[in-house]
């Protein structure tokens, strides 16, 4: 057991930057913007997170992965607090995260398409000649699109 006095807040943030989203493994939880605060006291390390979608089943797994990542650095007295307010928004996703999503083949959330119908950019050929197939995709956070030019179906990370 490491005395928490020797652990800096920066170190905790650094470790949290290695924890990825189980559904979209190219994104870290920092890219997603779901870590709201880190509080280090003598006894515990508290990580404050906020859920993306209310029913997102990945949240339980993310909590577990945070514990595992910290335990690997011998940080065991960990408290994970979930807060709902202010509600998570895709605005909190980092620019680096959006770029990683695109490379992964998922169109990043774009505020200009609050009602995503037309003009979502195909992550493969960059065409904006795309169409909405379904507002609901393989996970709660995504909608299903198809590119009319390269014909590839792709996921769009919905604005939230």
């Amino acid at each position: 057991m490491v005395n928490n006095n020797t652990i800096s807040k920066e170190k905790i943030w650094e470790i949290l930057g290695t924890v990825t989203d189980p559904e979209v493994p190219v994104l870290t939880i920092l890219d997603l913007g779901i870590v709201r605060d880190v509080v280090v006291t003598n006894e515990t390390v508290e990580v404050v997170i906020t859920p993306t979608y209310t029913g997102c089943p990945a949240m339980d797994m993310i909590s577990m992965n945070i514990r595992i990542a910290l335990a690997e650095h011998k940080i065991n007295n960990v408290k994970i607090t979930s807060v709902l307010s202010p509600a998570w928004t895709t605005d909190w996703m980092s620019e680096a995260g959006k770029q990683k999503l695109k490379t992964y083949g998922i169109a990043a959330p774009n505020k200009n398409f609050e009602i995503p119908e037309d003009g979502v950019e195909c992550p493969l050929c960059n065409s904006i000649n795309t169409r909405l197939i379904s507002q609901f995709g393989s996970t709660a956070c995504k909608a299903l699109y198809q590119c009319n030019d390269c014909k590839e179906p792709f996921d769009y990370f919905k604005c939230h």
């Binding site: 979608y53 029913g55 997102c56 089943p57 379904s134 609901f136």
Partner: peptide, 16 residues
Amino acid sequence: EQDIAITNISLDLLGQ
């Protein structure tokens, strides 16, 4: 696609 849609809604409601 619609199977996925209604079950996604189901999941949102369960979360709430």
